[in-house]
Amino acid sequence: MADASAAVAHDDHHYTATGLNSWKVGFWTFIGSECLFFGTLISTYMVYKGESLVGPFSGDVFDIPLTTISTFVLLMSSLAMVLALDGVQRGNKKLALTWLAAVIVLGATFLGFQVYEFNHFYHEGLSLSTNLLGSSFYVLTGFHGAHVTIGVIWLTTLFIMSAMNKLPPEKALNVEIAGLYWHFVDIVWIVIFVLVYLIQ
């Protein structure tokens, strides 16, 4: 993940059979793996949906309007990510820094919502060991949140690199791969939002 940063420049000069950069191919492959990871977590949630013996049940605790807002925040961060990449590719440092900062802030806001939500649910009586909902919900969204956290740390690193003038257009691939990751995490959330929150 973060180790994409340094090696990219050298690999660019290398011949590849497909003409694609190896980091890109590798990262797409990794995302394929991640699909199965989240797919299994989501499937487990679906299998245990409605099987909890004691409350609180999902209808008791979920706050759809609130989660809709946090989903919107994360969606907007993807848009900001596109603009940030554009800024880096064009060598426009100001644009790059602005939009990278936007992604980071939006991502952190999403995480803030999640912390609030976890805390709220916990006080409503839903812990990891309360029932099947507690186990499958916290583990699924928790692992998603961990991915968002890694993304925020990664993008912060790129932000600092950019601020230190170490992110010229030739190294835009670093941002592109971070963006791939970010969009992926975003899409996973859309699936979670639909399957976990909306369809109850």
Partner: peptide, 22 residues
């Protein structure tokens, strides 16, 4: 994921494979 679920069951008292919790 299966191992993570088992680990959560064992270390943090989750219920993935706990028949008493369904």
């Amino acid at each position: 994921v299966a191992l993570i679920m088992l680990a959560f069951d064992r270390f943090f008292a989750a219920n993935f494979f706990n028949v008493a919790a369904g």
